[in-house]
C-alpha cells in the first residue's frame, strides 16, 4: 500500500477537469500510488471561497473510487467563520485533517484563531498538516512551537524542513512526540538522516503532486526508493503510518 500524503487538487487541474480526478489518477497509476491525501490549491489563495474549495476537494475525492481522501483548509485570519468551516469539514464532509500554508495564506502561526484551530484538531483527533521550511511563517521551529504548546494535537511538517531547515525539523521531531513529518522536500542526505534518526512511526511520504501539470511523483518516489532502510520501516513510511494517522478505512 503506497499512500502519497501530500498532493493538491491544483488550480490547473480544477479549471480543466472540475472535480473529475480520472486523469490525475492515471499519473498515480503509472507510479503505483494507491491512495493520496488531497488538499486544495485554489483554497490557499486569499480570494478563494473556502467553503466552495473544501466542497470541491470533497467531491473530487468522492469521484476517485476511494483512492483520494480529503484534507480541509481554512483561513485563520477570517476569524470565527474559519472555526465553523473547519467544524463543518470534519463533521459533515468527513475530512481527515486540516492543511494550512502560512506562507501562501499569509498568516502567523501565533494567534488566537490558530490556537483555537489547534484545540479543535486535538478534540477531533485529526492532524494539522503545515507547509514548512519557509520563513517567516512556516518554519519547522514555529510548527514545533505549536506542538509544544498543544501536546494533545498531532502536527505534521508537510515538507520535513525542505532544503534549508531539515536539521531544525529533525531536532523538533526528536523533541515532540506529537510532531510528524512528510518526506517531501529535503535532499537525499537530509531525508536519509531523518529516516535514520526519527521514530519510524512518525514519518510519511509525499510528493506535492498536482500544483501544476508536472509529474513530481516519479522523482520523489525514486528518491525515497534509494534511501536505505529496513523493509518494515519502508512499509510504515510509504503507507501504514498514513492509515493510522489519518484513520483511513482500508
Amino acid at each position: 500500500m503506497i499512500i502519497d500524503t501530500h498532493t493538491h487538487w491544483g488550480i490547473v487541474w480544477e479549471d480543466k477537469y472540475g472535480t473529475d480526478p480520472s486523469e490525475w489518477l492515471k499519473v498515480c497509476d503509472r507510479h503505483g500510488v494507491d491512495m493520496s491525501a488531497l488538499m486544495t490549491h485554489r483554497g490557499l489563495t486569499i480570494n478563494s471561497d473556502m467553503k466552495r474549495c473544501n466542497d470541491i476537494v470533497r467531491e473530487t475525492c468522492d469521484r476517485s473510487g476511494g483512492r483520494l481522501f480529503p484534507l480541509a483548509t481554512v483561513h485563520p485570519d477570517f476569524g470565527e467563520p474559519s472555526l465553523r468551516e473547519f467544524e463543518r469539514c470534519v463533521n459533515d464532509l468527513d475530512m481527515r485533517g486540516l492543511k494550512l500554508h502560512p506562507w501562501i495564506q499569509g498568516f502567523s502561526t501565533s494567534g488566537t484563531v490558530m490556537d483555537e484551530l489547534c484545540r479543535l484538531c486535538g478534540a477531533f483527533n485529526v492532524p494539522m498538516i503545515f507547509h514548512d521550511g519557509t520563513p517567516c511563517y512556516s518554519m519547522p521551529s514555529q510548527i514545533g512551537g505549536l506542538a509544544l504548546r498543544f501536546p494533545d494535537t498531532k502536527f505534521v511538517l508537510g515538507h520535513a524542513g525542505l532544503l534549508e531547515l531539515w536539521r531544525s525539523a529533525l531536532s523538533f521531531l526528536k523533541r515532540c512526540p506529537n510532531l510528524y513529518a512528510i518526506l517531501c522536500g529535503p535532499h537525499f542526505a537530509g531525508m536519509t538522516a531523518i529516516v535514520k534518526k526519527i521514530d519510524e512511526n512518525k514519518l510519511m511520504w509525499g510528493t506535492d503532486f498536482g500544483f501544476g501539470w508536472s509529474d513530481s511523483i516519479e522523482y520523489r518516489k525514486g528518491l525515497i526508493d534509494i534511501i536505505a532502510m529496513h523493509d518494515s520501516k519502508r512499509t510504515k513510511i510509504m503507507g501504514d503510518n498514513a492509515v493510522r494517522i489519518f484513520k483511513l478505512k482500508i
Binding site: H187, Y219, G222
Partner: peptide
Amino acid sequence: SAAPKNSLVYEWEQ
C-alpha cells in the same frame, strides 16, 4: 548534482 547531499547517479538518471 550537488552530490553527496544528493545521489549523483540518481540525479543524472532522473
